[in-house]
Simulated assay, not measured.
Amino acid sequence: MPEFDIAVFGATGFTGRLAAQSLAQNPDLKILLAGRDRAKLEAVRSSCQYKPGIRVVDAMDKEAVAALVKDVKVIANFAGPFSKYAHFIVESVVKEGHAYCDITGETVFIGEMIKKFQGEALRTGAVLIPMAGFDSVPADITSFLALESARAKSWVIDRMDHYYKARGGFNGGTLETALAMQESGDALKFMDDNILIPDPSWPPPPPVPHKPQYEPFLKTWSAPFFMHNTNARVVRRARYLENAQDTEAAKAVYQEHMIIGKGPLGHFAAKIMDAGLSVGAALSTKAIGRKLIRAVGPSPGEGPSQLAQEGGFYSGTLLAREGDKVRVAVRMKSKGDPGNVFTILCITEIAKLLVKEKPAMRGFTTGSLAYGHKLVEKLKARGVKITTEIFP
């Protein structure tokens, strides 16, 4: 029987430290902090309300990782780049039939893990919910609720457009992971719509333009949302896991947009935002560009100030269409920096559910498929506003 409920792996990083402090507010949970540096782990422990245990573990030490996983029910992983540091953790969780969640956006790595370990995970009963933060809980939950409402009305949804408004800071770890993907060549594979679908016969969605667009329902201009390539893959995997034989679901479009503004100024601003994203993407493909980005961006372990975290927010509206008609609108709102406050809220609630509740689906899954409305209600209880509107 595992001694601990949840191990926070990478507890000394910026987001891992925040997660440790959040989980250690629960006296009924036995928390373990795991990382490479004992002194840093002790510092994080001293900042926690209920003092967790400590385990010094190097993610590259396969035997040490296996011993850690045996001792805990759930690994909540914050140590990236995940393609570099998470392989032995995932392998051990699958072998033991335990549970795992993380905050990666590295769909290429997760796709590789699915191909390698999904069969064994289903045999051992392991439950793995990667991308359990701002990547990609809003996309997963809003699409789940929209499609559930549509099915109740016998509507066939052809397209879902998710419109984001957000304010927050940027973490050095997130930046380093993105740059590492470019250096490894994974960024090209990142564009594969079916990167999380192991069945090569499952058809890809029709191509859609990634450019500034006007949304008549919201009466606003938008630019492409930079997290689309991660979130859209998670939404497609959820549809595949629901019914791998439903090729109509495979053809449905899911696209993400950043709300910019209304009128001619909104249109102009959307073009500027789109151009800025293109320049940033181009810079990251060149060694000199990555060097410049690292020089001006936050370093691993760094993140936004407490004031910036508290002043952030996320607001999203997902529009589900049957043909040209909007049938369902799902709205989600949360206070706090999306990449830190909201991410920590999401992954800690998922980790606690993994400890206390039996999931509806095992193997590599998503929060919505494992816990559905239980997760929705947990998020609401933490102050996240989630509403669904139907348009007959």
Rank of each mutant, 00 (worst) to 15 (best):
S149N: 12
G16F: 02
G363V: 10
A24P: 06
A24E: 03
A295V: 07
R233T: 05
Y240S: 11
V127L: 07
I293L: 15
P338N: 06
W155P: 08
E349A: 07
A329L: 08
A76H: 04
N77G: 06
P27C: 09
G303I: 02
I293C: 03
L122P: 02
D186K: 01
V376S: 08
I89S: 04
G168F: 00
M227C: 09
K211G: 01
G53K: 00
W221M: 03
K262Y: 00
A66P: 08
K374Y: 01
Y214M: 05
G266N: 01
R382S: 14
T348A: 04
D186T: 03
A76C: 13
G13E: 07
V330R: 10
D158H: 10
A59E: 02
A250Q: 00
V235I: 11
K73D: 12
G297S: 02
P138W: 08
A99R: 15
S143H: 07
S154M: 08
K211L: 13
H228W: 07
T104Y: 08
V108M: 02
V279T: 10
D37S: 15
D186Q: 07
L283G: 00
K335M: 11
G169Y: 08
H162Q: 14
E176M: 10
N77A: 11
P130C: 12
M131D: 06
L188D: 14
L122M: 13
D199A: 12
V235F: 05
F268D: 02
L318C: 10
V330S: 12
T343P: 11
D193Q: 05
V8Y: 00
K40A: 04
V208W: 00
G53Q: 01
A20S: 15
Q213R: 13
G169V: 10
K291M: 11
S201I: 02
K352Q: 15
G276K: 11
K219W: 05
D28I: 02
T388R: 13
L196A: 09
R45E: 14
F342H: 04
T343V: 09
P203M: 05
P392S: 12
K385V: 14
V127I: 13
D58W: 04
Q21C: 09
T174G: 09
E120Q: 15
A281L: 14
E215W: 04
E63H: 11
A295H: 13
Q306V: 13
A59N: 02
A287Y: 04
H98P: 02
I141C: 09
T285E: 14
L32N: 02
